[in-house]
Structures are given as C-alpha cells and as structure tokens.
C-alpha cells in the first residue's frame, strides 16, 4: 500500500501545493517596504504634507497649475512631482536648531496668500485647540 505512488499522491502533492503558496506569498517583493509596527523606532526623516493650492480660474485642471509655480522646497529649483510632499532640508534643520521648531514649508507661489516661510512670520493663531492621542 505504501508504495512510491502513494507517497507521491498523499505527500508530494500537498507539499507541492504548500510550496507554491509559500513561494507566492513569501517571495521577495519588488516593492516591499518595512511595514510599520507599533513599538518600532521610526528612522525616517520628518515629512510635512500640505494640500495642493486651489486653482483659481483658468489653467489646466490637471497637474500643478503654472500660475502657482511648482511646489518647491525653498532654496532649490527642484519641484515635487505632482505630490505635496516636502522632505525636510538639512539646512533648515540646522537653521532652526536654536529655536527648536520644525521644518519650514513653502509653496513656490506668486500669490500674496501662499505658503509660509521661516522668514515671513504669520500672525499668531490665537488660542489653540486640538487633541492628543497615544497608542
């Protein structure tokens, strides 16, 4: 009864199925980044996301409007590629180390109301509200 064919059918086939599934799920992914797990240290540079400015009149509906200029990091000619992501610049961090505040964000905009830079100090926001949570 326990001949080669029996082993092939009742051990070989299940093992083959398991191996295929394991290969499919555990294979080194092309885009596998370490998933955040609570309790792990966070070793990425701080990022500050801000919304796209609303398009006022004219211009194309897609992509950053030329009227606002590209979303840019202050002091650099590079533009974010259709994303509102601004990696913190090392220079800013060194600049503000005396004050102990975070990175500056600026939208490269010609409008009077745009993003804030570290240079232009906006009016104080009055009594602040909000909430705090831990997990």
């Amino acid at each position: 009864m326990f001949d080669a064919e029996w082993y092939l059918v009742f051990a070989g086939i299940p093992l083959a199925i398991v191996a295929v599934l394991a290969l499919l799920t555990l294979r080194p992914g092309k885009d596998r980044r370490p998933r955040y797990k609570p309790g792990q240290p966070w070793q990425h540079a701080p990022v500050w996301f801000e919304p796209h400015p609303a398009h006022v009149g004219g211009g194309s509906e897609h992509g950053p409007a030329a009227a606002h200029g590209p979303a840019a990091v202050p002091g650099s000619g590079t533009a974010a590629l259709g994303s509102s992501m601004y990696p913190e610049q090392p220079g800013e961090r060194a600049l503000e180390s005396g004050h102990g505040s975070g990175p500056a964000v600026a939208t490269g905009t010609a409008r009077p109301v745009g993003g804030a830079t570290a240079a232009s100090v906006p009016p104080p926001a009055g009594p602040l509200g909000g909430a705090r949570g831990t997990w």
Partner: peptide, 25 residues
C-alpha cells in the same frame, strides 16, 4: 497639513510651533 516624523518633547509644544508655521493664516 500633516506632519509625520519625530516630535521634540514636549510633543504638544513642538506641534504648536509647527502649527504656527503651517501657512499664511
């Protein structure tokens, strides 16, 4: 606006400093 990263301690004060610089208004 959304900030993802390390906050100085106390976190509340750092967040408020960030908030003060988060826009024109």
């Amino acid at each position: 606006t959304l900030y993802v990263g390390e906050l100085g301690t106390p976190t509340r004060r750092h967040a408020e400093e960030l908030h003060a610089r988060s826009g024109a208004t």
